[in-house]
């Protein structure tokens, strides 16, 4: 038995190193194909071009329309999830009686566990028709409806991570505020929220990263028309939806069209990676403050 101990430790370490391998694999695969892509398309054309028509006979590879579509849907999602998530976090952390917490938290967990393809169905066949009754100009595919549904999807993430941050604020701070005659709302908004600020910001950035990387809702309900617009009522296309669109077709390996999905994927990876790093850094700072 004792002879095997070092062997076991090495085997375990090997497994742990696989996660490093995963990251390396992602970077490697994306880099190789992206470089191959950039040999044919100048990087400035790719990053700053305003026309994305890679599948046309006269292709154009300006990624901005996809970026704009992604940012718009994510912004709508955050506009829904941020206020709702923060308010519900404040309520759950500072106000809600134990019974309500016990009931609400599992429901939020269920919301977070619903597969995204189901949210896509919901956006396309329930929310869009509903909104069309109020906004007659709303197209069947649009940015608004998937944005709202995505907001509902990431709400639990914002809410539960923010609540964790608020729970970590020491009781002494709250008691200090109450002793000065502050109401619950004043305590929550002026003492607890600022104290938990970096933790909450970390939660919101993580949620934004999730929204940017979300695929199925937009692939189903936002359309496949890359366009540079600020109008949320018309069909658009996001980076993730584009990758799905190409994957569904039969694009042969090694062609320029095939490589576009890796170039777009690279952009997506770098963007979310930055956000994740900032979020992790903020979380670490927050933990240091209160431990």
């Amino acid at each position: 038995m004792k002879r095997f101990e070092p062997l076991i430790e090495w085997a375990l370490l090997l497994c742990a190193l696989l996660s490093i391998g995963t990251t390396a694999g992602i970077i490697l695969v994306l880099t190789i194909e992206t470089f191959a892509f950039l040999r044919e398309v100048p990087v400035t054309d790719f990053l700053f071009g305003t026309n994305w028509t890679p599948l046309f006979a006269t292709p154009s590879f300006g990624v901005l329309p996809l970026v704009a579509g992604t940012v718009m849907v994510s912004a709508i999602a955050m506009a829904v999830a941020l206020p709702m998530g923060l308010l519900s976090a404040v309520y759950l952390s500072e106000y809600a009686p134990l019974g309500v917490r016990r009931m609400v938290k599992p429901i939020l967990e269920i919301l977070a566990g619903v597969p995204t393809v189901v949210y896509g169905y919901f956006a396309l066949l329930f929310v869009t028709p509903l909104l069309q009754q109020v906004l007659p100009g709303l197209a069947g595919f649009n940015a608004l409806s998937p944005g709202i549904v995505m907001g509902i999807m990431i709400l639990p993430l914002v809410s539960s991570l923010s609540e964790d941050a608020m729970q970590a604020v020491p009781r002494g701070l709250r008691e200090g505020a109450y002793a000065l005659g502050a109401t619950k709302m004043q305590t929550s908004l002026r003492v607890v929220l600022p104290a938990a600020f970096s933790g909450i910001t970390a939660a919101c950035i993580l949620a934004a990263s999730r929204a940017i990387g979300e695929t199925m809702i937009v692939a189903i309900a936002a359309g496949q028309q890359p366009r540079l617009t600020a109008n949320p009522l018309v069909p658009i296309e996001t980076m993730t939806a584009y990758i799905v669109q190409v994957s569904l077709g039969d694009t042969p390996q090694g062609t320029l069209e095939y490589r576009t999905i890796f170039a777009v994927g690279m952009l997506l990876f770098l963007g979310t990676f930055m956000l994740n790093l900032v979020s992790a850094w903020l979380r670490a700072r927050f933990r240091e403050e209160y431990s």
């Binding site: 993730t240 990758i243 790093l277």
Partner: peptide
């Protein structure tokens, strides 16, 4: 921690390439 937040479609591209 970082991998846990990488969009799932990126894993798809990894799977496709690898």
């Amino acid at each position: 921690t970082n991998l846990a937040a990488v969009p799932s479609i990126i894993y798809g591209l990894l799977g496709l390439g690898l």
